[in-house]
């Protein structure tokens, strides 16, 4: 589903990713951990197509297509979703307008109210502006709601657990787990092992100094928790 080959990328002229390789198959859950500044969020943003990040070399294939050649909206329509670490507030556009238009753009159908109930999001939310006045936890649940509605083939969760309390995390995990199909995949980017207690990964990778330095099974996360990244 996702094939990253030797990806090198700069941010503000500084090299952040230095030859990253990663392969994700259908049905798999991968976790990406690593120290601050290693490039975890950079990778997520590059996969989503953020214009401020400059890919200097390497390839990314998504469902057999050249991902780096696609605009952000094309990537979304092809089935890629990234849950933002810091979701934005957008004035003057309601959540309802946003969700309906996004679903239409991606050719997806679904019951917004149902998914909101599952994620314990209150009905008034739809009439509020995107993320306006939301707490960190509410913004994250909004991201997961979008994920549930768009039903992507590859979902990338960028530090979704940061700023979440245990209850919020449980709800998020429930939402994520409910979406598993045999043919979609998940990449969880996280600092902490906590979320991985609720969403059990098949593979855990350590991203350090711009590349993946270690790969293991779920036990690796526990080991990192105990011993740190050094």
């Amino acid at each position: 589903m996702l094939e990253i080959k030797n990806l090198c990328a700069n941010v503000d002229g500084k090299p952040i990713l230095k030859g990253l390789n990663l392969s994700i198959e259908k049905g798999e859950i991968h976790a990406l951990m690593g120290p601050n500044g290693a490039g975890k969020s950079t990778l997520a943003k590059i996969l989503a197509g953020h214009p401020a990040y400059e890919v200097t070399s390497g390839e990314v294939w998504f469902k057999g297509q050249d991902l780096l050649a696609m605009d952000p909206e094309e990537r979304a329509r092809t089935g890629l979703f990234m849950s933002f670490q810091y979701p934005l507030e957008i004035a003057g556009v309601t959540n309802r307008q946003f969700l309906e238009a996004a679903m239409k753009a991606q050719g997806k159908e679904g019951k917004i109210d149902e998914k909101m109930e599952e994620l314990e999001i209150r009905a008034e939310f739809l009439d509020r502006n995107i993320n306006e006045g939301f707490s960190g936890g509410e913004k994250k649940r909004n991201e997961i709601l979008q994920m549930a509605l768009f039903d992507p083939d590859l979902a990338i969760l960028d530090e979704t657990d940061s700023g979440l309390d245990i209850d919020a995390m449980r709800i998020v995990a429930k939402g994520v787990n409910a979406m598993r199909r045999g043919d979609n995949a998940l990449l969880i980017i996280t600092h902490y092992q906590r979320l991985l207690d609720y969403i059990r990964p098949d593979f855990v990778h350590v991203l350090a100094d711009g590349a993946i330095v270690r790969t293991g099974g779920p036990e690796l996360a526990l080991e990192l928790e105990e011993k740190g990244y050094a």
């Binding site: 952000p72 909206e73 329509r77 990234m82 979701p87 003057g92 753009a105 502006n129 979008q146």
Partner: peptide
């Protein structure tokens, strides 16, 4: 970028942000 990452085209995203500003 946020709007485009949800499938909205650049022109539509621009219009929405302009509309949001005017609203």
């Amino acid at each position: 970028f946020y709007l485009r990452s949800r499938g909205l085209g650049l022109e539509q995203a621009r219009e929405w942000l302009i509309g949001g500003f005017c609203k």
